[in-house]
Each structure stands twice: as C-alpha cells, then as structure tokens.
C-alpha cells in the first residue's frame, strides 16, 4: 500500500463530484453529459482498484474490468443514439429529444 486508503477515497470522491457537476451543469449538451458519466465511472473504478489493493483480493480488479466492459457497451449505444438523433433533429441539445418517435 503506497498511500493511505483515505487519500484514495478523497481522490475518488473529488473525481466523482467533478463528474456529477459535469452531468448536472451541462444538461443541454449530450456529449458533455456522457463525458460526465465517464468521469463518474472512472471514480468508481479507482475505488474498486484501491479496495482490491487494500484488502489484497483480486475481486476489486475483476469488478473494475466489468465496469469497463459495461462502459464500452453503454458508450457505443449512447453514441449510436446521438448520431441517430442528430440525423433527425440537427442538434445535440437534450431538451429537443423529448420523444423517441416523431
């Protein structure tokens, strides 16, 4: 353990708060919203790896890998949806995307 667990907790919390701020502030731009989700998932991954290092078990790293696979699935679907909606409405403003079919 190179640094105390609390310092890793602080770093992950700051990173999570920044992602949350990004999601809540940039509500109008869907690209920035997805970036905020990425930051929050990275904070969760950092915490999993730190816990794995702290308790000496590999389970945390396994779950970090699961989060990574989940994120790539989520991003590919979300960006496909962004391309589809941009083709229809010519904007990335989330407020315009209030309905799926029109």
């Amino acid at each position: 353990m190179i640094v105390p667990f609390t310092h890793l907790l602080v770093l992950a919390s700051i990173l999570f708060s920044l992602g949350l701020i990004c999601v809540l502030v940039w509500r109008s731009n869907i690209i920035m919203l997805l970036i905020g989700i990425e930051i929050m998932l990275n904070a969760a991954m950092l915490l999993f790896v730190a816990g794995s290092n702290h308790w000496g078990m590999a389970d945390g790293q396994v779950f970090a890998l699961m989060i990574m696979a989940m994120t790539s699935a989520e991003v590919s679907l979300a960006l496909a949806m962004v391309v589809y909606l941009h083709r229809r409405k010519r904007t990335v403003n989330v407020d315009e995307f209030s309905e799926l079919k029109d």
Binding site: I2, V49, A50, S52, N53, Q61, A64, L65, M68
Partner: peptide, 8 residues
C-alpha cells in the same frame, strides 16, 4: 499501475 493492478 502503482496500486498493483497492471492489467487494469
């Protein structure tokens, strides 16, 4: 890497 998770 510093946290001993080189694969991640």
């Amino acid at each position: 890497y510093l946290l001993a998770a080189p694969l991640i």
